[in-house]
């Protein structure tokens, strides 16, 4: 049973594609307002970049980090948020799924409930975040005039993947608290989500407590700060990037474990 859906990655991917595809089709057919959500997401994120630009007009760097380096961190936060919304919006619906007993139906099926939760919904606003994130990341990488090798390109792609995995795992773990906090408006996941704001800046500007929080306890820093640290050659240790996939595995394992603890706690709902 443990990790059984990981052992069959092809089937897992196939089922995800089928379940997600069905939801996507439904949204495209029945909801025509999603482009408004996409545009509003783009505008929100552009506003953040404008704010950053204004700040950097007055000061040359923050703690040794220049404008485009911080833009990269901003954009990694957007990009992962976008992937989390577009493909794994279901994590944000977990509270509802648990509280109204929809989880019953998921548990009746021979498919991992985590997979079913992840593919439960489509957040079209994520598309805006992804687009703006990709534009900003490529701009930052071009402007910083980095030395690229094949190895570095592969690692860069891997760091984006691990960043998405970390983001989705944190979303899932935070929303899994729905098994314990049974009120409809559980604010805890949103609070955790907002801690991600810290990861838009070089964490060295914060106090030690905040640094420990976003680098160890809820490792948002591995989404943005540590990849930037590697890509912009801030570190003298070349193997430093390995910490990112390790953090990703840690997050996924915690989310998986917490979810299965939650399942034991699940009480369904009366009829």
């Amino acid at each position: 049973m443990t990790f059984s859906w990981l052992r069959k990655p092809r089937r897992t991917f196939f089922l995800y594609r089928r379940l997600f595809g069905a939801q996507l089709k439904a949204i495209l057919e029945y909801q025509s307002d999603f482009y408004i959500m996409i545009v509003s997401a783009v505008l929100t994120q552009l506003l953040g970049i404008v704010f950053l630009w204004v700040v950097y007009n007055r000061i040359p760097d923050i703690n040794g980090w220049t404008f485009w380096e911080v833009v990269f961190m901003y954009a990694m936060v957007y990009l992962t948020e976008g992937f989390g919304s577009l493909f794994f919006e279901g994590t944000w619906r977990l509270g509802r799924i648990v509280n109204n007993g929809e989880l019953d139906v998921m548990l009746l099926r021979p498919v991992s409930p985590i997979l079913q939760v992840l593919s439960y919904s489509v957040g079209m606003n994520g598309l805006g975040n992804i687009v703006i994130g990709i534009i900003m990341i490529s701009q930052a990488l071009i402007r910083m005039d980095l030395h690229w090798s094949l190895g570095k390109i592969i690692i860069a792609v891997l760091l984006v993947v691990t960043a998405i995995l970390i983001r989705v795992s944190i979303n899932l773990a935070a929303n899994t608290t729905a098994f314990w906090f049974k009120n409809a408006g559980n604010a805890f996941p949103m609070m955790i989500h907002n801690l991600g704001e810290f990861a838009k800046y070089p964490i060295t500007i914060f106090s030690l407590g905040v640094q420990l929080l976003v680098a160890v306890l809820i490792p948002f820093a591995f989404i943005s700060f540590f990849p930037a640290y590697y890509l912009f050659d801030k570190s003298s240790a070349p193997w430093f990037w390995i910490a990112c996939p390790v953090a990703a595995i840690y997050c996924a394992a915690v989310a998986y474990t917490v979810f299965h603890f939650g399942l034991r706690k699940y009480e369904s709902v009366g009829n």
Partner: peptide, 15 residues
């Protein structure tokens, strides 16, 4: 197994 919970559907609402 198969199950029908009369009070809750296992069909996807929008599909």
């Amino acid at each position: 197994i198969g199950a029908v919970f009369g009070q809750r559907t296992q069909l996807w609402w929008d599909i």
